[in-house]
Nucleic acid binder design. Structure first.
Length: 615
RNA sequence: GCGCCCGUAGCUCAGCUGGAUAGAGCGCUGCCCUCCGAAGGCAGAGGCCAGGGGUUCGAAUCCCUUCGGGCGCGCCA
């Protein structure tokens, strides 16, 4: 129920540690080392130093905050000390002694309250790099998901108008999260819920009808309560082309369904085009209307099922607090016992006119996801829907008997700025900055990266001027520049390494027998370690449903690469291309290839391009 | 009034689900281009992690509370 908790697998890297498929040193080096730590623990159990049956699930191997502590640190002693009835430092000494028998480690120290700091021999990192090259774009792909189906619902913007920037953030976030989960081994379905039922789309229909009359020559004014935006003008014109004046004579109940269907259709087409401009696409578009029209009323069936399970009753609710509404009418109604599943109040399912509430349809919709086989559900919503989370999670619990989990990710507001000044937006006149306008102005890559370079639940300042700036201050540029720089090195290296292939896969094969052992500079080792961190990062980001971690990681990797590059200015022997040493150059090109591979991989998960040059 | 989110360097933000001396960018100060892309790099100054209590070997992180900001609060979606 707690939102911050990942609903898929909370186990993190220890999950794969027990999976023999991923314990190879070259795939996820942290998981491999964790396995060795656990082996050391097991040896101590066998020797009688540790009792059997300890809970080792909290034992972690992680990169230390301070590089001077070594390459990795494990908390094993501190976690196990209590259950083992030993002092952390004492136990740490015992574990450390075991680990020292493993020649993978060059240094095993006990530090602080009982950390065991580990330093790995350079060949371990060199081997890790050696594994990156042949894996190519597959490097970092994980098995966390175990091919389990996950449904990610995102965007789901009402088909009543063009998408704004906030929708865009949800679209980019959902898309990147889907990419990430896919890469982490889940079977992801990307879904869009079309709110094509209810009062809003009737308002759309009436608004469109006015534009239709306008297109036929009537002088119309759009009254309050209808959509004033001129995006409906072409819809009205299309209706004229299709129906001529025929709709004018018909009563409301005849033209409204027709106009509504056409308007929704055209709005959805437009939304899909805008999403395509952002490189976002969904596998499934699920119509709310389809729940109640056609063969069976799924909303009624869902309510019936809940009623049979005893989760529904007739009753009254206290009047809403806060902003007092004068049209409050105290009445007995059909209520879902949401409080039994963690919500604050019970929730109505029927409006006073007898139709379903939006919530009722939403329960049926989520039941549909469950019925289609999904046990892991993720919804991406705008900030204004935050108050809706508990009731839907309650409903999912009730309707699946706890067999499914729903994580709701809230994307916060986007504030559009231009050089620090807020961009004026007037929603009242229907004249607001659309997502499409922003994408057209600054480009897809900039929009996507900036929207992911922030936690989803933090408000985002999006500065139209800054995102096209070419400087370190603009992370989009900075990361792409690192990739372009890497490609530049490959181009320039052909003089020293004749026959260096331009194609990445061919180049990876060509560089496979490079003398990796000559990559022994501190900066080079640092880059190799950073690259080796990538599979672990993917797993953690996927488990937490936090794609922004990829963006920050890429920025750090780019930064280390730029730094190493610049070392060559003062220290020519550290340049990547060494004129009279083709073998060393090959090894360093292999390192660049590793960097470029991870940059390209991460950028592709974010849906951002990895350009070969930016001149 | 209640619920949820947020509060970390002057500014904008990370902080790997509880780990060691809290990190980046911008801005500020001082440096590095005859040669792999200076659209870059190096160094320095800058912190009571909003305040207070608690949990434990250990808290920016978890719990309680106060303050401050945002969102929401039956018959909209």
């Amino acid at each position: 129920m707690t939102r911050r908790r990942n609903c898929v697998s909370p186990r993190g890297s220890q999950a794969t540690a027990e999976n023999p498929m991923t314990t190879d040193l070259s795939q996820n080096i942290f998981a491999a080392v964790l396995k060795r730590v656990q082996a050391a623990n097991a040896a101590l159990v066998a020797a009688g130093t540790l009792p059997a049956g300890l809970d080792v699930s909290r034992v972690l191997v992680e990169p230390p905050r301070d590089a001077s502590h070594g390459d990795m640190a494990t908390n094993a002693a501190m976690v196990l000390a209590k259950d083992a009835g030993k002092k952390p430092r004492e136990l740490a000494d015992a574990i450390a002694a075991k680990l020292r028998e493993d020649d993978l480690f060059t240094k095993v120290d006990v530090a602080g309250p009982g950390f065991i700091n580990l330093s790995l021999q350079a060949t371990a990192w060199q081997k890790a790099l050696g594994a990156v090259l042949p894996a190519g774009a597959e490097y970092g792909r994980g098995t966390l998901g175990q091919a389990e189906p996950v449904n990610v619902e995102y965007v789901s913007a009402n088909p009543t108008g063009p998408m704004h920037v906030g929708h865009g953030r949800g679209a980019v976030f959902g898309d990147a999260l889907s990419n990430l989960l896919d890469f982490a081994g889940y079977a992801v379905t990307r879904e869009y819920y079309i709110n094509d039922a209810g009062a809003q789309v009737d308002v759309l229909a009436r608004s469109t009808f006015l534009r239709y009359r306008e297109a036929l020559g009537d002088d119309v004014t759009i009254p309050d309560g209808l959509y004033p935006g001129d995006y409906l003008v072409p819809v009205g014109e299309a209706l004229v082309l299709e129906f001529g004046r025929a709709l004018l004579q018909k009563p409301d109940e005849d033209w409204l369904p027709v106009v509504r269907a056409r308007a929704i259709d055209m709005m959805m087409t437009s939304i899909r085009e805008d999403l395509a401009a952002l490189n976002v696409s969904h596998a499934t578009f699920f119509s709310e209307r389809s729940l109640t029209v056609g063969a069976a009323d799924q909303v009624a069936a869902t309510i019936a099922a809940l009623r049979a399970a005893g989760h529904i009753y007739q009753g009254r609710l206290p009047p809403p607090k806060g902003a007092p509404s004068d049209d409050y009418d105290d009445r007995e109604q059909t209520l879902f016992r949401a409080t039994a599943f963690g919500d604050d109040v019970d929730r109505p399912l029927m409006k006073s006119d007898g139709s379903y509430t939006y919530f009722a349809a939403d329960i049926a919709y989520h039941k549909s996801k469950f019925d289609r086989g999904f046990r892991h559900l993720i919804d991406v919503w705008g900030a204004d829907h935050g108050g809706y989370i508990k009731r839907v999670q309650a409903a999912v619990k009730a309707i699946t008997a706890g067999a499914a989990d729903l994580d709701v990710k809230i994307v916060q507001l986007v504030r559009l700025l231009r050089a620090g000044e807020p961009v004026k937006m007037s929603k009242r006149s229907g004249d607001f900055v659309t997502l499409r306008e922003v994408v057209d102005e600054v480009g897809r890559d900039a929009v996507r990266f900036m929207m992911l370079y922030r936690k989803n639940d933090a408000v985002l300042d999006f500065d139209l001027a800054k995102v096209i700036e070419q400087s370190r201050d603009n992370p989009v540029f900075y990361v792409q520049y690192a990739h372009a720089r890497a490609q530049s090195a490959f181009r320039n290296a052909r003089e020293v390494v004749p026959g260096l292939p331009a194609d990445p896969a061919a180049r990876a094969a060509f560089l496979a027998d490079a003398p990796f052992e000559r990559l022994d500079d501190a900066g080079e080792l640092g880059l190799m370690k950073k690259i080796a961190l990538y599979p672990r990062l993917i797993e953690a980001a996927a488990a937490a449903h936090e794609p922004h971690r990829i963006a920050f990681y890429l920025y750090e990797l780019a930064s280390e690469f730029h730094a190493q590059w610049s070392l060559g200015k003062d220290s020519p022997h550290l340049r990547f291309i060494i004129q009279n040493d083709p073998r060393l150059t090959m090894a360093r090109l292999a390192l660049i290839q590793g960097v470029a591979t991870v940059l390209a991989s991460g950028l592709s998960l974010l849906g951002v391009g990895a350009p070969d040059e930016m001149r």
